[in-house]
Structures are given as structure tokens and as C-alpha cells.
């Protein structure tokens, strides 16, 4: 186990770490921003892969996807690939250039907007 965890039973058991939402969120963050030390890679990989399915809120509706899905993959699944749109993840705009790299996590809220008629 990486040394950054306290020496308590909860943090010494791989299973409880994998189920800890805070630890999973940390794993997601580390992968998204590419700040993983090479020797810790396999540990964090196992955290990220432990969950088979993630639940996302997309335009207010709950949908489930396989773990390790990128924004680009979600858009393709929703038949929105190639459409002119803008996307917010948890309140922050994600530029189109990051759609392929940005991996989504359980509980993420997405807002996907387009231009429509209006005065």
C-alpha cells in the first residue's frame, strides 16, 4: 500500500480502499491529470478498475456506463459524436480538445448543450 495512507486497518485492506469513494475519486484525479509515480501505477490501476460500472448524471438523467469511459466515448454512445456542442463536467467546462483523454468517474454530473432557436 502506498505510504500516503494512515496505518489503520481500513487503509491496509485493498478491498476497503477499492470501495472507499474518496480513494476512488483520488485515483480518477491522478489518472486524469497524469500525476502518477510509475512504481505506484499498478496499485492505483487496481483502485480504478475495481468498480465495474459507473453512474453518471447527464443533463439531469442518471445513466450507467462501464468503468474507464472517456467523455468522447460517452458522446459516441449517446450518438452525439461530431455534433457541435459544449460540455460541463461537475460545473467546469471541458474543452473539446480534452474529450478523448478525460476519464469519467462515478457520480460525475455532465451538462451537454447545443444552440437552438431563440430571440
Amino acid at each position: 500500500m502506498p505510504e500516503l495512507f494512515p496505518q489503520t486497518p481500513h487503509f491496509q485492506d485493498l478491498k476497503s480502499l477499492q470501495n472507499d469513494p474518496g480513494v476512488r475519486e483520488l485515483a480518477c484525479f491522478l489518472f486524469t491529470y497524469g500525476v502518477l509515480p510509475r512504481d505506484k501505477m499498478s496499485f492505483w490501476y487496481s483502485i480504478l478498475h475495481s468498480h465495474k460500472v459507473i453512474a453518471l448524471s447527464i443533463n439531469g438523467k442518471r445513466q450507467q456506463f462501464d468503468d474507464r469511459i472517456s467523455i468522447a466515448q460517452v458522446l459516441e454512445r449517446l450518438e452525439l459524436k461530431g455534433k457541435r456542442l459544449a460540455l460541463e463536467r461537475n460545473g467546469e467546462i471541458v474543452p473539446r480538445s480534452r474529450f478523448k483523454q478525460e476519464m469519467l468517474c462515478d457520480g460525475d454530473k455532465l451538462e451537454i448543450v447545443i444552440a437552438v432557436g431563440g430571440g
Binding site: 443533463n59 447545443i114 444552440a115 432557436g117
Partner: peptide
């Protein structure tokens, strides 16, 4: 133009504004 949520599950072939 206005900015609104896209319809999820909308037919991909449907035209947009």
C-alpha cells in the same frame, strides 16, 4: 440563438438549427 441541453436519445440523423 439560445443555449439549451441537447436531447439525449435523440436520433443522430435529426438536423439541428
Amino acid at each position: 440563438v439560445a443555449i439549451r441541453r441537447t436531447n439525449i436519445g435523440q436520433n443522430a440523423k435529426e438536423p439541428s438549427l
